[in-house]
Structures are given as structure tokens and as C-alpha cells.
Design a protein around this nucleic acid. Structure first.
Lengths: 239, 239
DNA sequence: ACCTAGTCTATCGTCGACAATCGTCCGGCG
DNA sequence: CGCCGGACGATTGTCGACGATAGACTAGGT
């Protein structure tokens, strides 16, 4: 379940971070983890007790999560883990493509040799994990790769929004069991192309490659979701 | 100053919205207004009393504002209205261009005839206000025009981020006195071109036009800020 | 006179309590 | 038998209060 409070609450031995930050990180992880499933209600009293804090900091943390779209807050009815529909998924990936193609273009201008080397290292990591069919590591590296590109673009606000988008994607993947990639062994190659385009400082090509890559993933998820919604008729989890 | 609470607090006659929403809207307006200036400290007790609420909802509202980048929150030292540097302005406009060019491209696909008519109406509104040299109305219409395009794009998350970006821009304009446009009479023409490109469903052209338009505004502001930072060496307002 | 140490005040972070509200359950009525 | 209305319980929204912390101020030593 949720992590218990690491140290005894109230003692406040070495409280560097505030409770709000702790709770925020904890809940965020639990949601993207799948520990807290979409649609699940988050009752303040229970959660607060479980996390060893009072309701005040908990509520502050949940406000932030709500503003990031990870939970949905209906004024006098409480907070639940957000349920994302197909339309949401389309929005999320649309926005992601917009952000990331731009980031990739910027990365073409800004990437240092070190940056490019780091990206290449990630690609070899992908090769390793795709050969050993380790989807966990592969998709993890995939995410790191894309975050890296956003970091290279050097826009903190972009990175912030992107991170938000990505945790929504993680939330999505809690609702739909997706075979993320059509072909595992295709993944490293795609990313290698991206890196080389960056190395050649070819923004147009990079943008196309990134767009196509993300679109292909998005298409798989959206297809899966149409199927799921046709059957289950969307989120009805009330627990 | 800040708006006083509209109805008597505690009476809770018809409290449709929660205090948090009220306070949030109030503070947001005050910040983008210039009622609360960048760098100004927001002391919880004082603000709470002024707004007629207790500290709990106030803090929740401020958390959200902090996550939107309108205020900056240093853990045990309090909250202040954010001070934006030149680097921030560059980030903000960079992100805005990325978002809005994409939105404009989408709008090409999605705009109905009604949408286009509405945009044309905004352009004529711009013509009126530019002829009468009414910069207030002109820039207001300008913003509405651009928001409209984001709305047409039909991506709620995009619109959300865009709105955040725009309030940061408003905050920026509290720090630098900018003559926003090089030539007032240029503005309606630029926007007319954008509308017509949308009407012709020409995404490439629209994106170029939007990019150039925003870049020109951004360039003016950035120039102004380099000047200001060279002199004043950035925000030191502590009040 | 300047720097250092101790205190002191303003303010934050957190908590428990109270009232208002929403959903639910039960009984009565058509 | 199903629908409507009123009371109950659970949960939220808000408040005031209590420690804890950071910065300022004062006093003392060199």
C-alpha cells in the first residue's frame, strides 16, 4: 500500500522537507504506481492517518495534484484519482507531441557533444534491454531518453509541463493494459535515428522522427482505449 | 487594493464556491492586475484577514498559485509574488510559441465557419481600437484572439497551460513597461493574415505567421528586459 | 568601531475541533 | 410494488490555537 511515514511523526527530529512535500511525493508515486487506482476515492481522514499527518498538509498536497490533473476534486464530494477517457488520452498525446517536437528542434541547436554522447548511451541501453526482451527497462529508458531531450532544450517550464504530461500518461497506463511497442527491436533503431538527426543538427528531420515515434505509440494506446470503452463504457470504478 | 469579501463571511448564505476558489481568483487577479507587485511578500495572516478567511483555505489557494509559477514559495520563509527575470521571459515566450503554433495548425483543421467569423469580428474590433489608438482594448482583443485559437484547437489541457503562460506574461508586464507593439496599425493586419490562412486551411502558413507575430512581441519585451536588468540588476523589491 | 553571541519577535507549519453538506437508509404514500 | 420525503452517518470546508523556525535586534567582547 502507501508507504508508511518513514520516521515517527510529531517528533520532528530532522524535518528538512515539509509534510506537504512528503505527502505530495508519496501520493504522486502511489498514483503513477498503480497503488492508488483511477477512480479510487481519497478520503482525507483515512489518508491523513495512514500517512501520519493531519488533514491540512494533505489537502494542500491534493490541491497541487488536482491542478496537475492527477486527481479530480469535486467541491463538496471529495477527491478521487482521475479517470482518463479516450478523449483525454488524445489531448495528452497531442500536447506531448507539440511540446516534444519543439523540444527536439531546440535540442538540435543546443545539444553539446556530451549531451549527444549521453543520448547515444541511452540508445545502447535500449538495445541491450530489447535484446533481452526486458520491456520494463526498455520503456523506462525510453522515458528517460525523451525527458533528456526536454532537458537539453533548456526550458524549465517546458520540462515542468512535460513531466506533468508524463505522469498523466503513467496514469493512463494504469487503466489500459497496453503492449506499448509493436516491435521491441524497432525501438532502439527509432531512437538512434533521432540522436543522429540531433548530431547532424537537422531540426526538421528530428521533429518528423519524434512526431512519428510518439504518434505510433499514441495510436496503439488510443486503439486500445476505443476497444476498452466500447466494452466497459469507461471508468465506473467506484470501489 | 484587494477586493473585500463580497458578502459577509461566516454567514455562508449561498456559498456556491468554496473559499479556496474565491481566494484563488482574487489573488490571481490581484497579481496579474498589478495590485500585488512582483517581489511583494504575501503574509498569510494579513492576507487572510483582509480576504475574510482563515489561513487554511488561503494556503491551499497559494499552493496552486505557486504550482502555476505566479508566486514563489520558500519553505519556512513565506510566499512572495514571483519575480521574473529575462531568462524566465525567454522561457515563457518560447513555450508560448511552441504551444500556439501547434494550436494554430490544429485550428486550421478544426475551425468551423462560425469560428472563422468570430475571429474576423475580433480583427475588425482590433481595427477600430487601433484607429482610435486605444492600446488597452487593442491588446485585450489581441489576447482574446489568441485564446480563441487555442480554444478552437479543442485541447483543454493545452488551453490550461496556455492560460498559465499568459498570466505569467501579464505578471511580466508588471515589471517592465513595454510599448507592446512597434506599430499599432500593424496589429490588425497581422491578425487578419492569420485568420485568412486559417480560412484557407493552410497550416504551414498559419504557423509561420503566428510564430513571427509572437516572436516580434517577445523580442521587444526581451530587449526591454535586458536594458532593465543591466540597470536595476533584477528584482530586488522586498517591500 | 566592528564583529559575535544570545535573545526576541514575527511568521510559518501543523494540528484538532466544529459546523455545513452530501449520500444513504428507512418509512410512508400513491 | 415503486416513488418520495425526512432523518442519520460520513466526509468535507473552515477555523482558531499551538509549537517551531528564521531573521532582527541588542548587548558584549576585542
Amino acid at each position: 500500500m502507501l508507504d508508511s511515514p518513514d520516521d515517527y511523526p510529531g517528533v520532528s527530529a530532522v524535518m528538512l522537507e515539509t509534510s506537504v512535500d512528503l505527502v505530495y511525493a508519496n501520493l504522486r508515486r502511489a498514483i503513477t504506481n498503480g497503488t492508488l487506482m483511477p477512480g479510487q476515492r481519497l478520503v482525507e481522514t483515512r489518508l491523513a492517518e495512514r500517512l501520519g499527518v493531519s488533514r491540512a498538509p494533505l489537502r494542500e498536497a491534493m490541491r497541487v495534484l488536482a491542478s496537475e490533473g492527477l486527481v479530480s476534486n469535486v467541491p463538496r464530494r471529495g477527491v478521487m484519482v482521475a479517470i482518463l477517457r479516450k478523449a483525454d488520452a488524445a489531448e495528452i498525446y497531442g500536447l506531448r507531441i507539440a511540446l516534444e517536437t519543439w523540444a527536439a528542434g531546440e535540442a538540435c541547436r543546443l545539444a553539446t557533444e556530451t549531451d549527444i554522447a549521453a543520448l547515444r548511451a541511452l540508445v545502447t541501453e535500449m538495445e541491450r534491454s530489447s535484446e533481452s526482451n526486458d520491456v520494463e527497462v526498455l520503456s523506462g529508458t525510453d522515458v528517460i531518453f525523451h525527458r533528456r531531450i526536454c532537458e537539453i532544450a533548456g526550458n524549465h517550464r517546458l520540462l515542468r509541463v512535460w513531466t506533468g504530461i508524463l505522469s498523466q500518461i503513467r496514469l493512463l497506463s494504469r487503466q489500459v493494459i497496453v503492449t506499448l511497442y509493436a516491435d521491441l527491436h524497432d525501438v532502439p533503431k527509432r531512437h538512434e535515428l533521432i540522436v543522429e538527426a540531433i548530431a547532424q543538427r537537422n531540426p526538421v528531420r528530428v521533429e518528423t522522427l519524434v512526431r512519428e515515434h510518439i504518434e505510433s505509440v499514441a495510436a496503439r494506446i488510443l486503439a486500445q482505449m476505443t476497444e476498452a470503452e466500447a466494452k466497459g463504457l469507461g471508468g465506473e470504478v467506484t470501489v
